[in-house]
Structure formats: structure tokens, C-alpha cells
Simulated scan of single mutants.
Amino acid sequence: MKRRERTRQLIELGGLIAKADLVELTGDDRAVILGLLVEAAATLRGETRARQLTLWRRRGKRAFDSGEIG
């Protein structure tokens, strides 16, 4: 059961990358996509973590609500 849950989580996360148009915008360059994610992780390790999470959460919710993604 754990394996199935993990597989579902990975599929959903991949879907978010696709919905954000990162596949298209990067020409499916996985090194670029990983670089973007590593940069985001570095930001979350910094002093602006709480502020950045708030901004990204708001932007994400707006994108889901408006259907502007994907």
C-alpha cells in the first residue's frame, strides 16, 4: 500500500510541473527543471522562508482557482 501511495504522490507532483508549463517552457530540459526546484529549495532554507511560502501559496491557489495553469 505504501508503494501505491508513493507512486500516486510522484504522479501528482509530476502533474504540477506539467500544469505550471515548466515542461513546455524549458523544452523538457530536466536539468533546468531540477535547477528551478533546487533554487526554490535553497530559498526555503533561507531567511525569507515564511514570506516566500506565503507568496507561492497565494500564487498557486490563484492559479488553481482561475484555471490559468496548464
Rank of each mutant, 00 (worst) to 15 (best):
31 A>P: 07
3 R>I: 11
12 E>D: 10
53 L>R: 00
17 I>K: 05
34 L>Q: 11
43 T>G: 08
21 D>S: 09
54 T>W: 07
37 L>I: 13
18 A>F: 04
51 R>Y: 05
38 V>G: 02
33 I>F: 07
31 A>D: 13
5 E>G: 01
51 R>G: 01
21 D>N: 11
14 G>R: 08
30 R>M: 15
68 E>P: 08
46 G>W: 05
47 E>P: 06
9 Q>A: 15
70 G>I: 04
14 G>A: 06
57 R>H: 09
21 D>K: 04
23 V>S: 04
58 R>H: 07
1 M>C: 06
3 R>P: 00
67 G>I: 07
11 I>L: 15
33 I>W: 07
21 D>V: 00
69 I>S: 15
27 G>P: 12
32 V>D: 03
41 A>I: 00
29 D>L: 03
2 K>V: 02
59 R>C: 03
8 R>S: 10
27 G>Q: 09
69 I>F: 14
46 G>K: 04
20 A>G: 06
68 E>K: 15
7 T>E: 15
4 R>A: 07
27 G>A: 07
15 G>T: 01
68 E>I: 05
7 T>D: 15
55 L>D: 14
27 G>D: 10
27 G>I: 08
11 I>E: 15
55 L>V: 12
20 A>H: 07
43 T>Y: 14
36 L>M: 12
6 R>L: 13
19 K>F: 08
9 Q>N: 11
11 I>N: 08
3 R>A: 09
40 A>Q: 14
34 L>A: 09
22 L>N: 07
56 W>M: 00
36 L>V: 04
10 L>Y: 09
33 I>Y: 04
28 D>H: 02
2 K>A: 12
57 R>P: 00
56 W>L: 14
41 A>L: 14
68 E>W: 10
5 E>H: 08
